[in-house]
């Protein structure tokens, strides 16, 4: 075998291609990117307001919760598991943070940490039940969906918990840096951390191997249980972060909100080309998937589709986009 068949300039080109490959992973969500562009073009023609910088920032803010949680969900789904409890983690995290700030300490930073810790803890429980007891994560997290939501209702008596902390509002929703609203910055932070972890860290390799073939991964010395648990914990942490943004937005933690958000999150991940069977997926794909969800939510309102029809049209377009991406 000749080893030196690649001359130097070609090698440089190859390494550039490799970087591109890393960013888009091995599964390029071109089909869904086309779907996103098509939607943007369509809504821009139909509505004068859609393609304005104010509205695009709106979309960014409205998509924040879905995108941040979808980053975590990408890890869980690539590891061939699922987390149906993210919306409930969000509820319990935000009311925990708000109650802590009201009842124990008005330190907004400690409050935020409590919210994130609650998310991490629920993720840990999800992971332990799935791996150590061998219960399918679909069932574990379906149960956790009810448990976390129920506890959130109990400890708040189903009433919103007000948060009166200007720095908290500013850090998680109302501030901006260089003209970019903080919710969008938080989204970018989550995407970068997720992207680096998934595509450039050893942990990312373990996630792909675990989801691609758990037995082969175990036979190669990878602790597949720990890998899966960490994926659930990461999702929990990001759901906790999302809950803080949600709380800062309304100046209150509301346990009665965000029902069904987990379906938008899962749809965003799958739209982005991540395989429900595990082993394949990318963070860029998840971003595109989230943007499709966000553009639909925003654009359908702008062109005056009734809220009942919005639900149906959104579902239809999700199916269409996945079908498109399968064919390309």
């Amino acid at each position: 075998m000749s080893t030196a068949t690649t001359p130097a300039p070609a090698a440089a080109a190859e390494s550039r291609r490799n970087v591109a490959r890393d960013l888009f992973s091995s599964d390029r969500p071109y089909g869904v990117l086309l779907a996103l562009i098509a939607l943007v073009v369509f809504f821009s023609i139909k509505s004068d307001v859609f393609f304005t910088s104010a509205n695009l920032q709106n979309i960014g803010r409205q998509t924040t919760l879905v995108t941040i949680m979808a980053v975590g969900m990408t890890f869980v789904i690539i590891a061939a598991e699922i987390d149906l409890s993210v919306a409930s983690i969000l509820k319990l995290s935000c009311v925990s943070a708000a109650l802590f700030m009201n009842d124990f300490s008005n330190n907004w930073f400690l409050g935020a940490m409590v919210g994130i810790a609650v998310g991490a803890f629920i993720g840990l429980v999800n992971g332990l039940l799935t791996t150590k007891l061998g219960i399918p994560s679909f069932l574990v997290t379906l149960g956790m969906l009810g448990v976390a939501k129920g506890i959130a209702f109990v400890i708040t008596d189903t009433a919103p918990v007000l948060v009166d902390s200007r720095p908290f509002w500013a850090v998680f929703y109302e501030g901006s840096i260089a003209g970019i609203p903080v919710p969008i910055l938080w989204t970018i932070v989550a995407l970068i951390i997720g992207g680096v972890l998934l595509h450039f860290s050893t942990f990312g390799r373990k996630v792909y191997a675990t989801g691609g073939n758990a037995t082969a991964a175990r036979y190669s010395g990878i602790n597949t249980d720990r890998t899966k648990i960490l994926c659930f914990v990461f999702t929990g942490v990001l759901a906790g972060l999302a809950s803080l943004i949600f709380t800062a937005q309304g100046h209150a933690a509301r346990p009665d909100f965000a029902d069904g958000l987990e379906l938008d999150v899962i749809a965003a991940v799958i739209l982005g080309g991540t395989s429900l069977f595990g082993g394949r997926g990318s963070i860029i794909g998840t971003l595109i998937g989230s943007l499709i969800i966000g553009v639909l939510n925003n654009g359908l309102v702008l062109i005056g589709v009734s809220s009942s029809w919005q639900i149906a049209v959104k579902g239809f377009i999700i199916i269409l986009a996945v079908a498109l991406s399968k064919r390309s």
């Binding site: 091995s26 050893t202 390799r205 373990k206 792909y208 191997a209 691609g212 073939n213 037995t215 082969a216 991964a217 036979y219 190669s220 010395g221 990878i222 082993g279 394949r280």
Partner: peptide, 20 residues
């Protein structure tokens, strides 16, 4: 079943047992 992640690349499979 036990040796390879078939959907992954040669490089990724070879790295698998030596990740540490």
């Amino acid at each position: 079943e036990q040796g390879l992640v078939l959907a992954d690349t040669i490089a990724a499979n070879i790295a698998m047992p030596r990740l540490p």
